[in-house]
Amino acid sequence: MRMRRLAVLAAVIAAVSACGSGSDTGAAANALRIMAPAAPGGGWDQTSRTAEQAIKSVDPARKVEVFNVPGAGGTIGLAQLAGDKGDGGLLMTMGLVMVGAVEQNKSQVTLAEVTPIARLTEEYEIVVVPAESPFQTLNDLVAAWKADPAKVSVAGGSAGGTDHIVAGLMAKAAGVDPKQVNYIAHSGGGEALNALLGNKVSIGISGIGEFAEHVKSGKLRSLGITAPARVPGLESPTLKEGGLDVELANWRGFVAPPGLDDAARKNLTDLVTKMHDGQAWKDAVAKNGWIDSFQTGQPFADFLAAEQSRVKGIIAEMGLVS
């Protein structure tokens, strides 16, 4: 008897709501949803919310909404995106970290399935040592590494993340077995920074932004950055100058669901291009210290494919996937 009442109530509410939602279909065609496949506060979330504001500023009529689907390095969001086949009003923020996470978590859905839209920004990585460290240059590090990889503890972010990949690439370039790297994973740059400032680990790897201030103040010393050339405002050689052929940018971009037709794809690309050309985005890029690396269309699709095969290779060589 109770249950019947409940059912009646449900039916009434459902009927009311059905009437309501019917009237709203007109506005939805113009709406854009941006998925941040991470919890609020992280880099992808920040990029998504910045983009939301920037799109609103160049296209005030458009309804833009950011939502979070956190978990497993973004692969949960990726799986959800793949389920929304053909949805031309949906973008997902992603980046290099997701490429690694797909491999490592053996995700059912890979990035080969989604529709690439644009690369937005990138940040280079920096390799530092504590001020008290005996390593003055990259050569000192390489020598010690070759002598005994176990004695060189490397602090960085999560296992299989960008920092770990840099460590693997560096070891490979230095002629050290990437499997032998004594990598100490930390839950973010802050924790790794603490280990470095306390002189508990030999070297640290993170985004330039995380360590730059402490390099300037002299508490940390930079051995090299993963950029192709020196970065203005930071006194540091590149890894290439130091003799390790490692170049890597931690990039972020947008992808869309699989199965988009050309018109829908062009539509999204045009919108993102318009956003990129607007003043609000330029201001945000400057404010956050990002590097603009805008790229769309086939070049970005090729870039994404190349990154996938590179990351897949090094993750296997580091023994991170069985």
Binding site: I13, A14, V16, S17, A18, G20, S21, S23, D24
Partner: peptide, 8 residues
């Protein structure tokens, strides 16, 4: 989730 009441 807004579900049934989406838009209302």
């Amino acid at each position: 989730p807004a579900g049934l009441l989406d838009g209302v």
